[in-house]
Design a binder for these strands. Structure first.
Lengths: 137, 137
DNA sequence: ATCATTGTACGATAAAACTCGTACTACGAA
DNA sequence: TTCGTAGTACGAGTTTTATCGTACAATGAT
Protein backbone atom coordinates (compact mmCIF):
# COMPACT_ATOMS: atom_id res chain seq x y z
CA UNK A 1 0.00 0.00 0.00
CA UNK A 2 1.26 3.44 -0.97
CA UNK A 3 0.35 6.71 0.61
CA UNK A 4 0.58 9.81 -1.47
CA UNK A 5 1.44 12.94 0.43
CA UNK A 6 2.36 16.36 -0.92
CA UNK A 7 3.48 15.04 -4.26
CA UNK A 8 5.83 12.43 -2.82
CA UNK A 9 4.94 8.77 -2.42
CA UNK A 10 5.85 7.04 0.81
CA UNK A 11 5.72 3.47 1.96
CA UNK A 12 3.74 2.85 5.10
CA UNK A 13 6.58 3.70 7.41
CA UNK A 14 3.76 5.51 9.11
CA UNK A 15 2.73 2.32 10.79
CA UNK A 16 3.17 2.34 14.53
CA UNK A 17 6.66 1.39 15.58
CA UNK A 18 6.54 -1.86 17.47
CA UNK A 19 8.90 -3.40 19.97
CA UNK A 20 9.55 -7.12 20.30
CA UNK A 21 8.67 -8.84 23.56
CA UNK A 22 9.08 -12.45 24.63
CA UNK A 23 5.82 -14.23 25.32
CA UNK A 24 4.91 -15.22 28.84
CA UNK A 25 5.98 -18.80 28.28
CA UNK A 26 9.26 -17.67 26.77
CA UNK A 27 10.57 -15.97 29.88
CA UNK A 28 14.01 -17.30 30.85
CA UNK A 29 15.14 -17.35 34.44
CA UNK A 30 18.65 -16.71 33.24
CA UNK A 31 17.62 -13.54 31.42
CA UNK A 32 15.37 -12.30 34.21
CA UNK A 33 17.98 -12.74 36.92
CA UNK A 34 20.68 -11.16 34.78
CA UNK A 35 18.37 -8.25 34.06
CA UNK A 36 17.64 -7.78 37.75
CA UNK A 37 21.26 -8.00 38.85
CA UNK A 38 22.12 -4.56 37.56
CA UNK A 39 21.48 -1.72 40.02
CA UNK A 40 20.39 0.76 37.35
CA UNK A 41 17.84 -1.69 36.04
CA UNK A 42 16.62 -2.47 39.54
CA UNK A 43 16.08 1.25 40.01
CA UNK A 44 13.88 1.26 36.93
CA UNK A 45 11.96 -1.78 38.08
CA UNK A 46 11.52 -0.37 41.57
CA UNK A 47 10.13 2.88 40.25
CA UNK A 48 7.77 1.03 37.96
CA UNK A 49 6.56 -0.94 40.95
CA UNK A 50 6.18 2.11 43.17
CA UNK A 51 4.48 4.53 40.80
CA UNK A 52 1.12 3.38 39.42
CA UNK A 53 0.49 3.58 35.70
CA UNK A 54 2.78 3.62 32.70
CA UNK A 55 5.83 5.85 32.71
CA UNK A 56 7.94 7.23 29.90
CA UNK A 57 11.68 6.57 29.91
CA UNK A 58 12.22 10.26 30.49
CA UNK A 59 10.45 9.96 33.84
CA UNK A 60 13.44 8.14 35.28
CA UNK A 61 16.36 9.97 36.86
CA UNK A 62 19.09 7.48 36.07
CA UNK A 63 22.78 8.00 36.84
CA UNK A 64 23.78 7.17 33.27
CA UNK A 65 23.65 8.75 29.83
CA UNK A 66 20.62 8.66 27.56
CA UNK A 67 22.03 5.96 25.31
CA UNK A 68 22.95 3.81 28.27
CA UNK A 69 19.41 4.21 29.55
CA UNK A 70 18.11 2.96 26.23
CA UNK A 71 20.36 -0.05 26.61
CA UNK A 72 19.01 -0.89 30.07
CA UNK A 73 15.38 -0.50 29.04
CA UNK A 74 16.01 -2.82 26.12
CA UNK A 75 17.61 -5.46 28.34
CA UNK A 76 14.60 -5.34 30.63
CA UNK A 77 12.19 -5.60 27.73
CA UNK A 78 14.02 -8.45 26.02
CA UNK A 79 14.16 -10.33 29.30
CA UNK A 80 10.41 -9.89 29.60
CA UNK A 81 10.56 -7.85 32.78
CA UNK A 82 8.89 -4.77 31.31
CA UNK A 83 6.48 -3.99 28.51
CA UNK A 84 7.19 -1.04 26.21
CA UNK A 85 5.06 0.60 23.57
CA UNK A 86 5.24 3.85 21.68
CA UNK A 87 2.98 6.76 22.31
CA UNK A 88 3.98 9.62 20.09
CA UNK A 89 7.70 10.04 20.38
CA UNK A 90 7.72 8.64 23.86
CA UNK A 91 7.82 5.04 25.04
CA UNK A 92 5.57 4.03 27.88
CA UNK A 93 6.91 1.39 30.23
CA UNK A 94 5.18 -0.94 32.61
CA UNK A 95 6.12 -3.93 34.72
CA UNK A 96 5.07 -7.36 33.47
CA UNK A 97 4.23 -8.31 37.01
CA UNK A 98 1.51 -10.80 36.12
CA UNK A 99 3.65 -12.63 33.57
CA UNK A 100 6.57 -12.80 35.95
CA UNK A 101 4.35 -14.04 38.73
CA UNK A 102 2.94 -16.72 36.46
CA UNK A 103 6.34 -18.01 35.45
CA UNK A 104 8.40 -17.34 38.55
CA UNK A 105 6.04 -16.98 41.52
CA UNK A 106 7.32 -14.75 44.30
CA UNK A 107 10.48 -13.76 42.48
CA UNK A 108 9.64 -10.19 41.58
CA UNK A 109 8.19 -9.43 44.99
CA UNK A 110 11.23 -10.88 46.75
CA UNK A 111 13.61 -8.82 44.64
CA UNK A 112 11.58 -5.64 45.10
CA UNK A 113 11.44 -6.07 48.84
CA UNK A 114 15.14 -6.81 48.97
CA UNK A 115 15.83 -3.69 46.92
CA UNK A 116 13.76 -1.58 49.29
CA UNK A 117 15.57 -3.02 52.26
CA UNK A 118 19.00 -2.32 50.81
CA UNK A 119 18.01 1.17 49.72
CA UNK A 120 16.82 2.10 53.18
CA UNK A 121 19.89 0.50 54.73
CA UNK A 122 22.21 2.49 52.47
CA UNK A 123 20.48 5.85 52.80
CA UNK A 124 20.35 5.45 56.56
CA UNK A 125 18.74 8.32 58.50
CA UNK A 126 18.07 10.24 55.32
CA UNK A 127 14.31 10.29 55.55
CA UNK A 128 12.11 9.08 58.43
CA UNK A 129 10.33 6.25 56.66
CA UNK A 130 9.59 5.21 53.11
CA UNK A 131 9.18 2.45 50.56
CA UNK A 132 6.45 -0.01 51.43
CA UNK A 133 6.28 -1.97 48.17
CA UNK A 134 3.39 -0.81 46.05
CA UNK A 135 3.58 -3.39 43.28
CA UNK A 136 0.34 -4.91 42.07
CA UNK A 137 1.72 -8.43 41.99
CA UNK B 1 54.11 -21.09 68.66
CA UNK B 2 56.49 -23.62 67.15
CA UNK B 3 55.83 -27.26 66.57
CA UNK B 4 58.76 -29.59 66.50
CA UNK B 5 58.36 -32.58 64.28
CA UNK B 6 60.90 -35.16 63.19
CA UNK B 7 63.86 -32.88 63.84
CA UNK B 8 62.56 -29.97 61.81
CA UNK B 9 60.76 -26.95 63.27
CA UNK B 10 57.66 -25.73 61.53
CA UNK B 11 55.44 -22.70 61.92
CA UNK B 12 51.82 -23.38 62.60
CA UNK B 13 50.90 -23.74 58.99
CA UNK B 14 49.11 -26.68 60.45
CA UNK B 15 46.28 -24.42 61.44
CA UNK B 16 43.07 -25.15 59.64
CA UNK B 17 42.77 -23.35 56.34
CA UNK B 18 39.96 -20.89 56.58
CA UNK B 19 37.77 -19.31 53.92
CA UNK B 20 36.40 -15.78 54.13
CA UNK B 21 32.66 -15.30 54.23
CA UNK B 22 30.57 -12.15 54.37
CA UNK B 23 28.53 -11.78 57.54
CA UNK B 24 24.78 -12.04 57.40
CA UNK B 25 24.37 -8.28 57.49
CA UNK B 26 26.95 -7.86 54.76
CA UNK B 27 25.00 -9.72 52.08
CA UNK B 28 24.54 -7.60 48.95
CA UNK B 29 21.56 -8.04 46.70
CA UNK B 30 23.75 -7.18 43.77
CA UNK B 31 26.19 -9.96 44.54
CA UNK B 32 23.51 -12.51 45.34
CA UNK B 33 21.54 -11.90 42.16
CA UNK B 34 24.70 -11.93 40.06
CA UNK B 35 25.73 -15.19 41.68
CA UNK B 36 22.36 -16.73 40.99
CA UNK B 37 22.19 -15.61 37.38
CA UNK B 38 24.74 -18.15 36.21
CA UNK B 39 23.29 -21.54 35.26
CA UNK B 40 26.26 -23.52 36.56
CA UNK B 41 25.99 -21.82 39.92
CA UNK B 42 22.25 -22.35 40.04
CA UNK B 43 22.93 -26.04 39.46
CA UNK B 44 25.17 -26.04 42.50
CA UNK B 45 22.63 -24.18 44.60
CA UNK B 46 19.82 -26.46 43.47
CA UNK B 47 21.76 -29.56 44.39
CA UNK B 48 22.64 -28.11 47.77
CA UNK B 49 18.95 -27.44 48.34
CA UNK B 50 17.86 -30.88 47.18
CA UNK B 51 20.38 -33.07 48.95
CA UNK B 52 20.40 -32.80 52.74
CA UNK B 53 23.70 -32.30 54.54
CA UNK B 54 27.02 -30.84 53.46
CA UNK B 55 28.53 -31.86 50.14
CA UNK B 56 32.08 -31.74 48.86
CA UNK B 57 32.79 -29.90 45.63
CA UNK B 58 33.63 -33.23 44.05
CA UNK B 59 30.06 -34.37 44.58
CA UNK B 60 28.87 -32.07 41.81
CA UNK B 61 28.79 -33.13 38.17
CA UNK B 62 29.34 -29.77 36.56
CA UNK B 63 29.76 -29.21 32.82
CA UNK B 64 32.97 -27.23 33.31
CA UNK B 65 36.58 -27.88 34.22
CA UNK B 66 37.87 -28.25 37.76
CA UNK B 67 39.36 -24.78 37.90
CA UNK B 68 36.18 -23.25 36.58
CA UNK B 69 34.26 -25.09 39.25
CA UNK B 70 36.53 -23.58 41.87
CA UNK B 71 35.72 -20.18 40.42
CA UNK B 72 31.97 -20.70 40.67
CA UNK B 73 32.13 -22.02 44.23
CA UNK B 74 34.16 -18.99 45.22
CA UNK B 75 31.67 -16.60 43.64
CA UNK B 76 28.88 -18.25 45.58
CA UNK B 77 30.82 -18.12 48.82
CA UNK B 78 31.89 -14.49 48.43
CA UNK B 79 28.31 -13.53 47.63
CA UNK B 80 27.25 -15.24 50.84
CA UNK B 81 25.08 -17.83 49.12
CA UNK B 82 27.01 -20.84 50.39
CA UNK B 83 29.21 -21.67 53.36
CA UNK B 84 32.46 -23.54 52.79
CA UNK B 85 34.88 -25.13 55.24
CA UNK B 86 37.72 -27.54 54.93
CA UNK B 87 37.57 -31.11 56.08
CA UNK B 88 40.79 -32.82 55.25
CA UNK B 89 41.62 -32.00 51.67
CA UNK B 90 37.98 -31.60 50.79
CA UNK B 91 35.73 -28.59 51.17
CA UNK B 92 32.24 -29.11 52.48
CA UNK B 93 29.56 -26.84 51.09
CA UNK B 94 26.18 -25.86 52.42
CA UNK B 95 23.50 -23.33 51.56
CA UNK B 96 23.24 -20.26 53.77
CA UNK B 97 19.49 -20.54 53.56
CA UNK B 98 18.79 -18.94 56.93
CA UNK B 99 21.03 -15.96 56.29
CA UNK B 100 19.54 -15.41 52.87
CA UNK B 101 16.04 -15.70 54.25
CA UNK B 102 16.86 -13.16 56.95
CA UNK B 103 18.21 -10.61 54.50
CA UNK B 104 16.13 -11.30 51.42
CA UNK B 105 12.96 -13.11 52.46
CA UNK B 106 11.50 -15.39 49.83
CA UNK B 107 14.27 -14.80 47.33
CA UNK B 108 16.07 -18.13 47.53
CA UNK B 109 12.84 -20.10 47.52
CA UNK B 110 11.55 -18.20 44.50
CA UNK B 111 14.75 -18.80 42.56
CA UNK B 112 14.87 -22.48 43.48
CA UNK B 113 11.29 -23.02 42.43
CA UNK B 114 11.86 -21.16 39.20
CA UNK B 115 14.94 -23.27 38.51
CA UNK B 116 12.97 -26.45 39.08
CA UNK B 117 10.24 -25.25 36.78
CA UNK B 118 12.65 -24.41 33.98
CA UNK B 119 14.55 -27.66 34.39
CA UNK B 120 11.40 -29.73 34.08
CA UNK B 121 10.24 -27.61 31.16
CA UNK B 122 13.55 -28.13 29.36
CA UNK B 123 13.88 -31.85 29.98
CA UNK B 124 10.29 -32.43 28.92
CA UNK B 125 9.04 -36.00 29.05
CA UNK B 126 12.37 -37.25 30.34
CA UNK B 127 11.14 -38.56 33.65
CA UNK B 128 7.54 -38.85 34.87
CA UNK B 129 7.69 -36.42 37.77
CA UNK B 130 10.39 -34.91 39.94
CA UNK B 131 11.76 -31.93 41.81
CA UNK B 132 9.51 -30.74 44.62
CA UNK B 133 11.85 -28.29 46.34
CA UNK B 134 13.46 -29.85 49.35
CA UNK B 135 15.23 -26.78 50.77
CA UNK B 136 15.01 -26.19 54.49
CA UNK B 137 14.23 -22.50 54.11
C1' DA C 1 7.77 23.97 6.94
C1' DT C 2 10.42 24.37 11.14
C1' DC C 3 11.62 23.02 15.49
C1' DA C 4 11.94 20.75 19.92
C1' DT C 5 11.35 16.39 22.24
C1' DT C 6 12.16 11.26 22.71
C1' DG C 7 14.45 7.80 22.00
C1' DT C 8 17.50 4.69 18.63
C1' DA C 9 21.59 3.21 15.91
C1' DC C 10 26.18 2.80 15.61
C1' DG C 11 30.80 2.66 16.77
C1' DA C 12 34.25 2.64 20.27
C1' DT C 13 36.23 1.68 24.79
C1' DA C 14 36.99 -0.38 29.04
C1' DA C 15 35.86 -3.47 32.50
C1' DA C 16 34.00 -7.76 34.02
C1' DA C 17 32.93 -12.58 33.52
C1' DC C 18 33.56 -17.38 32.02
C1' DT C 19 36.53 -20.58 30.47
C1' DC C 20 40.68 -23.38 30.34
C1' DG C 21 45.39 -25.68 31.25
C1' DT C 22 49.30 -26.20 34.00
C1' DA C 23 51.69 -26.04 38.08
C1' DC C 24 51.18 -26.12 42.82
C1' DT C 25 49.67 -26.92 47.99
C1' DA C 26 47.48 -29.46 51.69
C1' DC C 27 45.98 -33.46 53.53
C1' DG C 28 45.27 -38.47 54.36
C1' DA C 29 46.45 -43.15 53.30
C1' DA C 30 49.56 -46.93 52.09
C1' DT D 1 58.24 -41.46 52.72
C1' DT D 2 55.64 -41.86 48.87
C1' DC D 3 51.54 -41.43 46.54
C1' DG D 4 46.83 -40.14 45.33
C1' DT D 5 43.03 -37.03 46.01
C1' DA D 6 40.83 -32.38 46.51
C1' DG D 7 41.08 -28.12 45.47
C1' DT D 8 43.81 -23.49 44.55
C1' DA D 9 46.77 -20.07 42.14
C1' DC D 10 48.01 -18.04 38.19
C1' DG D 11 48.14 -16.54 33.57
C1' DA D 12 45.73 -16.32 29.25
C1' DG D 13 42.08 -16.30 25.92
C1' DT D 14 37.38 -15.23 24.60
C1' DT D 15 33.00 -13.29 25.21
C1' DT D 16 29.70 -10.21 27.48
C1' DT D 17 28.56 -6.18 29.61
C1' DA D 18 28.32 -1.31 30.78
C1' DT D 19 29.40 2.97 29.32
C1' DC D 20 29.73 6.96 26.34
C1' DG D 21 29.29 10.45 22.28
C1' DT D 22 27.59 11.60 18.02
C1' DA D 23 24.52 11.25 14.42
C1' DC D 24 20.01 10.01 13.16
C1' DA D 25 14.68 9.03 12.98
C1' DA D 26 9.88 9.73 14.42
C1' DT D 27 6.48 12.41 16.34
C1' DG D 28 3.82 16.52 17.82
C1' DA D 29 3.64 21.47 18.28
C1' DT D 30 4.47 26.13 16.46
Amino acid sequence: MIWSQSGKTREIDLQVRTLAHPGRSELRLDAVLSALSDPVRRQIVSQLADVPGEQACSAFQLPVSKSTSTHHFRVLREAGVIEQHYRGTAILNSLRAADLEAQFPGLLRAVLQAAIKEASATATAARPQAGQLNAEV
